[in-house]
């Protein structure tokens, strides 16, 4: 008798509202493309956010012009990728003291089913690590967290 998938697997693999934090890395854009692909199949929506981390010495609503400009460029690229994938990606720019917390807050606010993260392995004292932000999201996120890591040959900036 062939093995049956566990009940509810289909729903697990079909998130309808997806949030992709974009830091401008190739991995993040790959995760976005993956989310768009899933959204195309599920008829879902994709949100892309870029978080500007505001130093404690500055007010939280500081204009942060250079960072805003870079963030807007990243989100414009995200919109272009979405358009190329046939998805209308909704983009937001966040300003927060801590990137991980604001992504979780926004995931709750947007009631997303999954957060898609692009992973670029970093090395700390010779050991590969996913980084503090992803670690935080894995522990605190109220929804599914999908982590996407490209083949090492394509990772480029990570190594």
């Amino acid at each position: 008798m062939p093995a049956q998938p566990p009940p509810g697997t289909g729903a697990l693999l079909s998130p309808r509202r997806m949030l992709v934090p974009c830091d401008g890395s190739d991995a993040a854009f790959s995760a976005l493309a993956l989310a768009c692909d899933i959204a195309n199949r599920t008829g879902g929506r994709v949100f892309a956010v870029h978080v500007i981390v505001v130093r404690r010495s500055l007010p939280i609503d500081d204009p942060m012009l250079p960072e805003s400009k870079r963030g807007n460029a990243i989100l414009t690229r995200a919109e272009e990728i979405g358009k190329a994938m046939g998805q209308s990606v909704e983009t937001e720019l966040l300003q927060a003291r801590d990137a991980g917390s604001s992504i979780i807050d926004e995931a709750e606010n947007l009631a997303v089913d999954a957060i898609f993260l692009g992973l670029e392995l970093k090395e700390r004292i010779g050991e590969p690590t996913v980084g503090a932000k992803i670690d935080h999201l894995l522990r605190e996120a109220p929804c599914q967290v999908w982590i996407f890591r490209d083949t090492l040959a394509n990772e480029g900036t990570a190594r």
Partner: peptide
């Protein structure tokens, strides 16, 4: 988190305009 705040800036979601900078 207690006392935490963040600024949410929703970009123009339109096919007719792109936000270059604020």
């Amino acid at each position: 988190r207690p006392g935490s705040k963040y600024v949410r800036q929703m970009r123009v979601h339109s096919t007719t305009f792109q936000t270059v900078e604020p």
